[in-house]
Computed example of a mutant assay.
Amino acid sequence: MELNRKNYFSLKKSGASDKNAAERFGVSLSKVQKWKKENLTSKEIRKLQLEKKFVPGCECEEEHCNSSKVHVWYMTEEERLAYIKKHPIRSTSRTKG
């Protein structure tokens, strides 16, 4: 498989990490990272980082478990309403000091 925009985005949309992509393309991880810097805009890279899926309960060393990354949670409307009911936003009476 050739490392190009079409193949890279296809793998990323399927949930593959850069490490997985490097294995599929038969190149090193550093080669994939260098290719990204040369061929993708910073906006595209950010968008890919935000689209990573969070896997609840998973504690592996893959990118989707890295706690320093932003995780996107997809909820149905019912799940969202149940979450809000369980975790309501409450105002505080803190004084500025």
Rank of each mutant, 00 (worst) to 15 (best):
M1G: 07
L3T: 06
N4Q: 06
N4R: 02
N4H: 05
N4D: 13
R5E: 01
R5P: 01
N7M: 00
F9R: 01
S10L: 13
L11Y: 15
L11D: 02
L11A: 06
K12Q: 09
K12L: 08
K13A: 05
S14F: 10
S14D: 06
G15I: 03
G15Q: 03
A16E: 04
S17A: 08
D18P: 02
N20A: 11
A21I: 15
A22P: 07
E23P: 01
E23D: 12
F25A: 00
G26F: 02
L29P: 05
K31W: 08
Q33L: 04
Q33A: 00
Q33E: 02
K34R: 10
W35C: 11
K36P: 04
K36V: 15
E38F: 00
N39M: 06
T41G: 06
T41F: 06
S42G: 03
S42R: 05
K43N: 09
E44G: 07
E44Q: 15
I45C: 04
I45A: 06
R46C: 12
R46L: 11
R46N: 15
K47Y: 11
K47C: 05
L48F: 09
E51T: 00
K52M: 04
F54A: 08
F54L: 11
V55M: 04
P56H: 07
G57L: 00
C58K: 02
C60S: 12
E61P: 01
E61Y: 05
E62F: 05
E63Y: 00
E63M: 02
H64R: 09
N66T: 06
N66I: 05
S67V: 12
S68N: 08
V70N: 14
H71R: 01
V72W: 12
V72F: 09
W73L: 12
E77P: 01
E78A: 14
E78I: 10
L81G: 00
L81C: 06
Y83V: 07
I84N: 02
K85C: 04
K86P: 03
H87N: 15
P88N: 05
P88Y: 06
I89P: 02
R90L: 07
T92K: 14
T95A: 10
G97H: 11
G97E: 10
